[in-house]
Design a protein around this nucleic acid. Structure first.
Length: 317
DNA sequence: AAGCTTATCAACCGCCTGATT
DNA sequence: GAATCAGGCGGTTGATAAGCT
């Protein structure tokens, strides 16, 4: 437990280290008051987000910029959605947890903040997984010997376990299922659509194209998996041995890759590669997610919230 | 009713990267 | 190229509400 600190003591300690922001003695800390919220919200309404360091002074707040940003991002932003996490959202969090950082997961669940996802994971989902005998960090059984044990009686618990164990379909079958007749994908290019449509098995035979497709769209670190999370928004790579491997070295198929998102052994066998000039893609234009989401069977969330048309609708609300 | 335990989540921290000067 | 700024991340804490004895 963190020992209780007074604001001045903390501020002095921080000042000694001379980190920018939050170093001024006399800045307020702790819970925000409605008055402070109003000051911040009004200022951002007028002046817009950004310039967090100078914002508190201009807005008349005795807070550091970081604190203002956090309050805005996690609480005051109009797009922030409050309330119960829906089953679809929970499902998505569970599946993306192995793959992405909190902010990227949050970016795929409209209205949810990284902090909220993180809290929900720590307080609900990790416990559920543990109660299911699944290691929340690795998504592997905590006790492999117990895998033959009868399944829990709760239907929700069953859903959870099945959700994690369910084999992943091929990307193409996922697309068919999702777009009700049309396999055209709304985000990936026509050429890519054509590739997936006309070569339903081609990508299974050609790891290079699969990897290259993913890499070219900023997914290097999906394949730099180190046992925890794949990457963060900045595209940080967490290489297992601190080294990237040749993009051409992969030999497995895409199905194996997608399955490996859930299956630890398969994932670890997957070749790591890297390519220059490949950076993280913005969450909103993430090309792999819809493929993965549909392959995972997460069509409801995808169709209702993340397609361009749904996003347009949400925007206009 | 009082005291204790547990759960929840807002807020903070240290650190990092990319952009700018 | 170095220094600084701005923004963002994951991990963690602590206040408090809710539940239990």
């Amino acid at each position: 437990m963190r020992k209780p600190t007074s604001s001045t003591a903390t501020a002095e300690a921080a000042a000694a280290k001379s980190t920018p922001c939050c170093v001024k003695v006399g800045l307020k800390r702790g819970p925000w008051t409605p008055e402070e919220d109003e000051l911040l919200a009004n200022y951002i309404k007028k002046e817009g987000e950004g310039r967090w360091r100078t914002l508190p002074k201009k807005a008349g707040l005795l807070r550091c910029g970081k604190s203002c940003r956090l309050r805005w991002m996690n609480y005051l932003r109009p797009s922030v959605k409050r309330g119960q996490i829906a089953p679809d959202e929970e499902d998505l969090i569970l599946r993306l947890h192995r793959l992405l950082g909190w902010s990227l997961i949050a970016g795929r669940i409209p209205g949810r903040t990284d902090n909220e996802i993180k809290n929900y994971w720590n307080t609900h989902l990790s416990k559920k997984l543990i109660s299911q005998g699944i290691d929340p960090r690795t998504h592997k059984p905590l006790n492999p010997q117990s895998s033959d044990q009868p399944k829990p009686s709760s239907s929700k618990a069953n859903h959870l376990q099945e959700s994690l164990k369910e084999p992943i379909k091929t990307a193409s079958s996922g697309l068919e299922e999702t777009t009700s007749g049309s396999t055209a994908h709304p985000i990936i290019s026509n050429k890519e659509n054509e590739y997936f449509q006309n070569n339903s098995n081609a990508h299974l035979d050609d790891q290079y194209h699969t990897d290259h497709f993913i890499a070219s769209r900023g997914y290097t670190s999906l394949l730099n998996y180190d046992g925890s999370f794949g990457m963060d928004l900045r595209g940080n790579q967490r290489l297992v041995n601190g080294e990237a491997e040749d993009i051409n070295s992969g030999t497995e198929d895409v199905l194996s890759f997608l399955n490996s998102l859930i299956n630890e052994e398969a994932f670890q066998q997957h070749q790591i590669f890297n390519e220059p000039n490949v950076n993280s893609a913005p969450a909103s234009s993430d090309p792999l997610f819809p493929i993965a989401a549909t392959a995972f069977g997460l069509t409801t969330v995808w169709e209702s919230t993340l397609t361009p048309s749904a996003l347009d609708q949400n925007e206009s609300k």
